[in-house]
């Protein structure tokens, strides 16, 4: 157990070192990078991906995957607009209903995966198409605009000098850290990822845990949709396309094993920040977008390689 913990700490530690190195290198490249205003602004831009990455860490720790998060985001974004403008509901009610719909979409994923025993990758590939299709069908490809000014506070405003959505993100992250680290639920999550059959035999609530995790993934995707709509003040059915790959990159960069059983929310957070500062810092030092994409791919491999090499040494 201690050996396992050591390795665990190691990957997150390596990542943290990498993060600090990147921070210094990028700061040396551009004097506009390491400023409070820029960093807070970057944090604002990464909130949607970050929010979804928290439940995704749980999903991947169980050995599963959720590819439908981007489509749930799109669907919920559309629903806010449709409930508010077409159905004439007050905006808060529209938001609550949209959150419910996202939760339901996640629950449906969970049911398909646990009750019908469809592998998560296939199940969520199918719902990725389905939910995006629903978003397109329901909206008839129309945008909904003209939200009241108060709604923009969430995505564009500040609270105590910090972008408002960051408070929400911090809350979700802390809840995530707490549950995965300190509760029975968290221990069951790891147990499922290590050996699902064994977890079932030892009487753990495997099905219920997985169902809850996928439901939470849907709920948080809906939350991200609300933040996103508030930030850009419009809804479109193509919102969140491809976000699933960004989220998964952040999670696996953060040291969560794609085979399940290993990973921490803190690692995900570091992975996320590393990705964001690379994108921002490289852009500020004059690297174009396509170059940045290449660098992020390379960093992903290097991070895993370093941690592989070091863990081999520590085993010897």
């Amino acid at each position: 157990m201690t050996a396992v913990t050591r390795v665990l700490v190691r990957h997150e530690a390596i990542l943290a070192i990498l993060f600090v190195v990147a921070l210094f290198v990028l700061a040396a490249q551009s004097d506009r990078f390491l400023t409070t205003a820029n960093l807070l602004n970057q944090a604002r831009l990464m909130t949607e991906v970050g929010l979804i990455a928290i439940p995704m860490t749980f999903v991947i720790v169980t050995g599963g995957i959720d590819l439908s998060v981007g489509s749930i985001l799109g669907l919920c974004a559309i629903l806010v607009g449709v409930f508010w403008q077409n159905a004439g509901l007050p905006l808060p009610a529209a938001i609550v209903l949209s959150l419910l719909a996202g939760t339901l979409a996640g629950f449906a994923n969970g049911v398909i995966i646990t009750r019908f025993r469809v592998p998560p990758l296939i199940a969520t590939l199918a719902t990725l198409a389905l939910y995006r299709g629903l978003a397109e069908g329901i909206s008839q490809a129309r945008s909904v605009r003209g939200y009241p000014a108060w709604f923009a506070t969430l995505g564009q405003g500040e609270l105590l000098g910090i972008p408002s959505q960051l408070w929400l993100f911090a809350l979700v992250a802390i809840v995530g850290i707490f549950i995965l680290r300190f509760t029975t639920f968290g221990r069951t999550t790891y147990a499922i990822g290590n050996n699902e059959a064994a977890a079932e035999f030892s009487g753990l609530a495997v099905e219920r845990t997985k169902l809850l995790i996928y439901t939470a993934s849907g709920f948080v995707s809906a939350l991200a949709a609300i933040v996103f709509v508030s930030r850009v003040s419009t809804t479109r059915s193509d919102m969140g396309t491809g976000i699933e790959l960004e989220v998964i990159t952040a999670v696996v960069l953060g040291g969560t094993s794609i085979f399940g059983g290993r990973g921490m929310v803190v690692g995900t957070l570091i992975g996320l920040c590393l990705m964001q500062i690379l994108q921002n810092g490289l852009s500020l030092s004059g690297v174009r977008g396509d170059g940045t994409t290449v660098v992020i791919g390379a960093v992903l491999i290097v991070a895993v390689l370093i941690s592989n090499v070091l863990s081999r040494f520590s085993n010897d």
Binding site: F259, G289, T293, I301, V304
Partner: peptide, 23 residues
């Protein structure tokens, strides 16, 4: 040989190839 999980290795390749293509 380097024991990089396939999804990570290919996610990275996805970035490298699609960015490199535009460059």
């Amino acid at each position: 040989y380097a024991k990089v999980p396939s999804i990570i290795a290919t996610l990275a390749m996805l970035s490298i190839l699609s960015g490199g293509l535009i460059t």
